[in-house]
């Protein structure tokens, strides 16, 4: 690990000025940043400690929705009664992540901005496309955990399971930078490798992800998140699915829906094809199954990850039905 200094900025504007400088990296919970430092994947001269900035703290439920400060711990998201009731997918996703110890450290902002888990990207001896090299080794190498959708020229999957749940519930991110602030829909915040394989999102140098805002869920909306892992403890999802389903009580006709997949693409993968299968129809197991099929219609598996297609169909179907409160026969 390289030598570095830690600076604690006086306020948010100061933090933005520091982060605009070369070799300055933001530090929140430190879960991913310290790993990347130890692996030698980043070697910043300075870590900018964001933990004392009041604007980044707090969970604020209200009539206009929910504000989650970027420094909110995953553990707090998982256990908050208001989030559990109104944004169930978000608390479910937070509860599935990592381990209790990590959830007590890891932050919402860090979870959204964490770098991919790709074993070529994380290997100190491999200079892959994401690190400025000339190729994605996963394309022709070992790719059981890689993308089946949206891949190319890099085939990572986005590791955040919180992001699909937040996107399913219409979240936006408030970002403060050296030249002011902006708000961006979380769905549009993440960027495909075809735009730039070296990054996964639209955060510019000097910008700080301050908070995530969730609108009130649509009337009659319920949500759920499910994921499949090899291990039940401390493992990354092979596939995850978040669903928001707003339907009329008696007829079960779906008025609005969002289906967002985890770990299948380089970004949290919203599936309008799947949403189309259920919106305007009374929801039942057959409809949910059709939505699952629709999720993977455009999938291009690599040599080792075709199993993810079968998994995605199942998880999308189960998550939609769980959100809608429908028991499968």
């Amino acid at each position: 690990m390289n030598r570095f200094e830690v600076l604690t900025p006086a306020d948010l504007a100061h933090a933005a000025r520091l982060l605009a400088r070369q070799g300055h990296v933001a530090l929140a919970g430190g879960v991913d940043v310290i790993d990347l430092l130890k692996l030698g994947i980043i070697a910043p001269a300075t870590l900018v400690n964001l933990k004392n900035l009041p604007e980044l703290h707090g969970i604020e439920p209200g009539p206009r929705g929910l504000r989650l400060g970027a420094l909110t711990k995953l553990h707090e998201v998982a256990e908050h009664p208001f989030i559990r009731e109104h944004y169930t997918a978000v608390s479910d996703a937070a509860r599935e992540a990592a381990t209790p110890q990590i959830r007590n450290l890891a932050t919402v902002g860090g979870n959204l901005l964490q770098r991919p888990r790709c074993w070529y990207f994380r290997h100190p001896d491999v200079n892959c496309l994401k690190k400025g090299g000339d190729r994605c080794y996963a394309l022709t190498g070992l790719n059981r955990y890689h993308a089946i959708l949206g891949g190319g020229p890099s085939f990572i999957v986005h590791p955040s399971n919180l992001a699909p749940a937040l996107i399913a519930l219409g979240a936006s991110a408030r970002i403060v930078g050296p030249s002011g602030e902006r708000s961006v829909e979380l769905e549009k915040f993440f960027t495909l490798p075809s735009v730039d394989p070296k990054r996964e999102n639209d955060l510019k140098p000097g910008e700080v992800l301050v908070e995530v805002n969730l609108p009130p869920p649509p009337a009659g909306a319920k949500s759920a998140y499910l994921e499949a892992r090899e291990k039940q403890s401390f493992d990354w999802p092979l596939v995850g699915a978040a669903a928001m389903v707003a339907s009329d009580g008696a007829s079960r006709t779906v008025r609005d829906a969002r289906i967002v997949l985890c770990a299948v693409a380089p970004i949290p993968w919203r599936s309008p094809e799947a949403e189309k299968e259920i919106i305007g129809h009374p929801l039942d197991a057959e409809r949910a199954r059709a939505a699952g099929e629709a999720c993977v219609r455009g999938a291009h598996p690599l040599a080792d990850n075709a199993y993810k297609i079968a998994m995605t169909k199942v998880l999308a179907r189960r998550t939609i039905l769980k959100a809608a409160g429908i028991e499968e026969a």
């Binding site: 381990t99 888990r117 074993w119 994380r122 090899e230 291990k231 039940q232 403890s233 401390f234 493992d235």
Partner: peptide
């Protein structure tokens, strides 16, 4: 990445 049994 090397997967060892966890508590669950």
């Amino acid at each position: 990445d090397y997967k060892l049994v966890g508590p669950l």
